[in-house]
């Protein structure tokens, strides 16, 4: 079934645009291979948190510089992503450690019963890696959208002051924010469908669901994905504005 769907997807992408379609298709496959390699490294015992932070940087590097090209916009985005990753990895680690959502709920994931749980990897680290990997796509997307739109604003009106530029970056952010949170919400509602049916059949009350491991884990995942999109907005606006102003001053100096 997946192969049929894959062919349909490829055909549709080619219909939209042949060159872009092929490029996108290849980048998806490359991303998939990179992720699987990273997952494998985690599985053979390399520290999951370090692995995921490095992995996110590699993925952003590829998406930003190979797909979009190296320029002021992508460099600013890359810097902002590094800052967001540092802030989020610390807070995700703290929340996961506190709420202990690592691992599986035994009743829910029956197919883990065929495996031995003696694996000697701390699953709290695995959960942190999971959340980091899941939020990186949306975060890169938001960051690129803001830095390129901001640059466009500057190109159209070169007399804008630093403060005004930053403000327009934030304004662009508002629009993206609402649609991205919406996209993420439905991705997770789709997952919740099966989860809720299971909880319902197990006669869980809403209060019990609130405290269940899998549900809490999913909520943490969705909220951090959204938080990634939120905090990248001011950070990207600030860094892009700074670099644009720097560039502007340089140009003025050269003219003089």
């Amino acid at each position: 079934m997946n192969i049929v769907l894959l062919i349909i997807l490829l055909l549709l992408m080619l219909y939209i645009d042949i060159k872009r379609g092929i490029k996108l298709f290849i980048s998806i496959i490359i991303n998939f291979i990179i992720l699987i390699i990273l997952f494998y490294l985690i599985a053979i015992g390399i520290n999951p948190i370090i692995c995921s932070i490095l992995g996110c940087l590699i993925v952003s590097y590829i998406i930003l510089f190979f797909v979009n090209g190296e320029n002021l916009k992508t460099i600013s985005s890359f810097k902002s992503i590094i800052i967001v990753l540092i802030i989020l990895s610390i807070s995700i680690f703290m929340i996961t450690k506190l709420s202990r959502t690592a691992g599986f709920e035994y009743d829910l994931d029956e197919d883990i019963s065929i495996f031995s749980t003696s694996v000697n990897i701390d699953f709290i680290d695995i959960s942190v890696a999971l959340v980091l990997f899941s939020l990186i796509g949306a975060t890169i997307d938001t960051s690129v959208a803001i830095s390129s739109a901001l640059y466009e604003v500057y190109e159209n009106n070169k007399n804008l002051k630093e403060k005004e530029l930053f403000k327009s970056g934030m304004n662009i952010g508002h629009d993206i924010l609402c649609t991205t949170t919406n996209t993420l919400l439905f991705v997770f509602l789709g997952d919740f469908l099966t989860l809720f049916i299971w909880y319902y059949k197990g006669h869980y009350s809403i209060l019990e669901i609130m405290n269940a491991k899998t549900f809490s884990g999913e909520v943490i995942k969705i909220l951090f994905s959204a938080l990634g999109c939120i905090i990248i907005i001011p950070i990207t606006s600030y860094i892009t504005t700074k670099s644009i102003i720097k560039l502007k001053n340089k140009r003025i100096k050269i003219k003089d």
């Binding site: 379609g21 998806i28 998939f32 992720l35 997952f39 699953f123 695995i126 949306a138 996209t183 993420l184």
Partner: peptide
């Protein structure tokens, strides 16, 4: 087309990590 696919890719594919 390209940016939206990225968002979905990471949120979905990573779910299998544990």
């Amino acid at each position: 087309m390209s940016t939206m696919s990225n968002v979905l890719f990471f949120t979905y594919i990573c779910a299998g990590l544990p």
